[in-house]
Design a protein around this nucleic acid. Structure first.
Lengths: 341, 341
DNA sequence: CTGAAAGCGCTTACAG
DNA sequence: CTGAAAGCGCTTACAG
């Protein structure tokens, strides 16, 4: 591998001058600069990033911890993050927490030991203790949370207004004439499951509809799956066969539920109206296509990186870091799984 | 940040001894070793990875270049790679080529400049020149290709037998009674599009069915999309309304085609039998569910990392690197988009 | 405009 | 068993 030393020896000048010439320092003569550049190109010189990292104490690399990779929404976020990072000359190390708190902790430690310039994270469903995140903050590594966040942790966040979106979805079911609306919520812990549930509840109450806890189905298994949708739908038919609308926490679960209804001769939307959440690509291609809340994954990824980038810059300049919370817009996409009565 | 120097000063011993004690060198007294370890723990010492990288000339980081992230098969591969890498203490930098040759080249350079320990890559559809890959090989950085490979490049590869899988799919259509079978192939360049096409053709010929070029629809747009499936299906109905079976290069395209047929009152499987390729999750939940070839993404990712890991080890030990080509098994998953006549 | 020197924080061959 | 020293390949404050 070619080093500065090689170029210096080749030209009979000092390493210092070579370094300065390549970095466009003003105090190098045009002649020397040109000579150095030509020689560097000739020898195909590439700066040793390990040495640069050690000197500059930065690696132009960030870490990303995400609960699941094979997932329409999250993979869209990943795409947004790496696209934006590349623009700014940053690389992204990706880690999957598998919705496990233990793994998430280990991965945070791993990234800190790697001395990444910053961390982006969406929390595992299991995570209810945040000391690992506070550790990151205490040692001044910039961190931005997105989608699945912890409200009490003091850092920048990019989210959607889950409560409002859920309210919109539920209100829509009411507007088209549903009288008894169930809710399949996600696992207990994550903030967005809670918020979506609260939005659902509030819409009912604001419309003088009874809120009945037995109409709320919680995900026992910890992850929102197709199977869970089927199981919940089956149980719902047993418990309440007069339900005429369901607001479901995630498209995948909604698709499972629709499958179960279809298998049992329950018609969507004629017998039951269904609204999902996230607008997975799949939602537009199944039959009936799924009415859902569009959640802007790509945009969320881009925004999260932008915030992180600003904090990295601020920290480098020893400026005060101010935390921001960005709320992205969602919208209701009406398709064929719902129908005005 | 705590350094070896801090620990040494704290204990009044040399940096050398501290380093050796922490690295379990045998020539350090048990007493010193213990003392050093305790102090390191107390001060929460973390080795500076930048310095370690510079000294050891390795970063325990690999690069991954993938055409698309938001994609069921590729995201499964990513999951397999990062899971396996984590087990061996490696981190993964992920880059998306967007099916662009130009980007792919830049990203290879980026990774080489970063001095990653190895590279995993699945080629962009556009890529037909391989000098960037040979550059990697020439400078002795281990590289393993998976799924979308270049046969002529000398390195390890993990693939499926696309030709055989396509043959199986086509033979199955013939077996259930199809007389006129079309093929929606992918873009022109990638090896697996070519191989799937060849498998289709061979199955026809082996069964004494006529091979008709006009029954093969090529993807003009460069990426295999839902829209492409719709467009091809539309064109097919115009050109050949007597086709009774289609073997389609990718599930997503197949789903687009099914949508178009459904919209136009053409029944699947009654009027046309359809076999897809890849076994996206979506294939199992749409109606009718899609008969397809299962392509083991997770396993492919794991295997690709394992091969790369071996080469990294070999290279470090200055051993000869032998390239391997691993062919993973595929199987036909029969669902409701096909039916025995 | 040029360069000697210090230093980033490690690892390791070598001397004692 | 311990430690001084060299060196990985850069960057940059400082002297001339």
């Amino acid at each position: 591998m070619v080093t500065l030393k090689n170029i210096a020896e080749e030209l009979g000048i000092s390493i210092t001058t070579v370094s300065k010439a390549l970095k466009e320092y003003p105090d190098v003569s045009e002649k020397t600069r040109k000579l150095v550049r030509e020689t560097a190109a000739l020898l195909n010189y590439q700066p040793n990033s390990f040495a640069v990292n050690l000197r500059t104490k930065e690696s132009k690399t960030i870490g990303l911890i995400i609960p699941v990779v094979v997932h329409h929404f999250f993979s869209s976020v990943i795409k947004g993050i790496i696209a934006q990072a590349e623009k700014k000359g940053y690389l992204v190390i990706i880690l999957q927490s598998n919705e496990s708190y233990e793994l998430e902790q280990k991965q945070i430690d791993l990234l800190l030991r790697k001395r990444v310039d910053g961390i982006l994270i969406s929390l595992a469903n299991e995570t209810s203790d945040f000391s690992h995140l506070n550790k990151v903050i205490n040692q001044q590594t910039p961190i931005v949370m997105f989608d699945k966040i912890a409200k009490v942790v003091k850092c920048s966040k990019v989210i959607i207004d889950d409560r409002k979106a859920a309210y919109t979805a539920t209100q829509y079911l009411i507007d088209i004439g549903c009288k008894k609306i169930a809710h399949f919520r996600g696992p207990l812990l994550p903030q967005n499951s809670i918020d979506r549930f609260l939005g659902y509840k509030k819409a009912l109450l604001d419309n003088d509809l009874e809120f009945d806890v037995s109409l709320v189905y919680t995900c026992e298994c910890g992850d929102a799956s197709f199977e869970e949708g089927k199981a919940n739908a089956k149980q719902l038919l047993k418990d309440h066969d007069d339900v005429d609308g369901i607001f479901i926490n995630t498209d995948l679960v909604a698709i499972g539920a629709m499958k179960e209804f279809n298998d049992r001769g329950v018609k969507v939307p004629e017998d039951i109206n269904i609204v999902g959440f996230s607008n997975w690509f799949m939602a537009s291609v199944i039959s009936p296509s799924l009415t859902t809340i569009n959640q802007p994954g790509l945009e969320m990824g881009k925004k999260a990186f932008k915030l992180l980038f600003k904090e990295i810059k601020s920290r480098k300049a020893n400026k005060l870091i101010t935390h921001k919370q960005v709320v992205l817009d969602t919208d209701l996409v009406v398709r064929d799984s719902t129908k005005n009565k």
